[in-house]
Design a protein around this nucleic acid. Sequence first.
DNA 1: TGACTTGCGCAACCAACTTGCGTATCGTCT
DNA 2: AGACGATACGCAAGTTGGTTGCGCAAGTCA
Lengths: 148, 148
Amino acid sequence: MVRRSLIAEQVLEIMSRPVRHCWTLDELQDDLARQGLAPDPSSVFRAVCGLERSGTVVRVPLGDGRGHYEVASEHHDHLLCSTCGRMEPLACSIVADLTSRVRVWSGFLVSGHQLVLSGTCGSCADDARGGSEHEGRRSASRAGKNGS
Amino acid sequence: MVRRSLIAEQVLEIMSRPVRHCWTLDELQDDLARQGLAPDPSSVFRAVCGLERSGTVVRVPLGDGRGHYEVASEHHDHLLCSTCGRMEPLACSIVADLTSRVRVWSGFLVSGHQLVLSGTCGSCADDARGGSEHEGRRSASRAGKNGS
DNA sequence: TGACTTGCGCAACCAACTTGCGTATCGTCT
DNA sequence: AGACGATACGCAAGTTGGTTGCGCAAGTCA
């Protein structure tokens, strides 16, 4: 009795788009609304929960107090552009040797990590050099509650 | 008219103790209660806010959905023991060269970062080797809400 | 076709803050 | 010392983001 969940399918479709790397429940709901679906927050939540349970998506704790989700893939870290608010993945191998160093230094057995680098992404840096118009897609979106 | 805030003073005193590296509002309130003060959560919140505004303490986003605070000092990262729940500081220099590498690799100008390494601290690892009793002070303390 | 299962909306609930407001207390000024 | 204004603090209500219970509707299977 496998019934397909329309919402879960759409959520997955949205999350597979390359335009963004990770989504909050809000953002998912907005995108769903934009496609004509207008699901209840609880439905989005349940869809994402289901996907998470099945290992299709993973929750990313970004430390802003909200739940962020991305499609599951190799573990990686995150670059957060504070100008345009965009999140980019960062190959995790770059942090790999850290764990062994930490073990030697402090005896701590590292089994996982979560790294968020914040700063300015390449294109925003270019924009800033080129002139200060254009201002980035979603600047300050993170300053208030949610930019809306 | 500088009135001293008793709660803020006590909070700072508590946070300066080496027994723990970072505190939630709850933990601060508990510790205050243990000293005979029994402040309202809002008072603790305001005290911490004031200290944060004055730069005395900083908020550490650990990604568990709660506010963690520590006394402001040199930027550093965190080791979170998943067995005993304790948080230890980690000299930030260990991550320093990462920023330049990231810049070269991806053009991202890193201005800040937040790294949380999770695993088993030295003493818990020893305990585990020695025998499996002792179980850690606060393991599973978080299971209730997010876990389910 | 009927029983059973599952998806989903609605509304209520919960945790962790956050804020408004009134009272108590303190520091300063006269 | 007493008045006065500012600040601290408790209480309670509000906010936000997430979570759950419930019931209806729809899909699936025998």
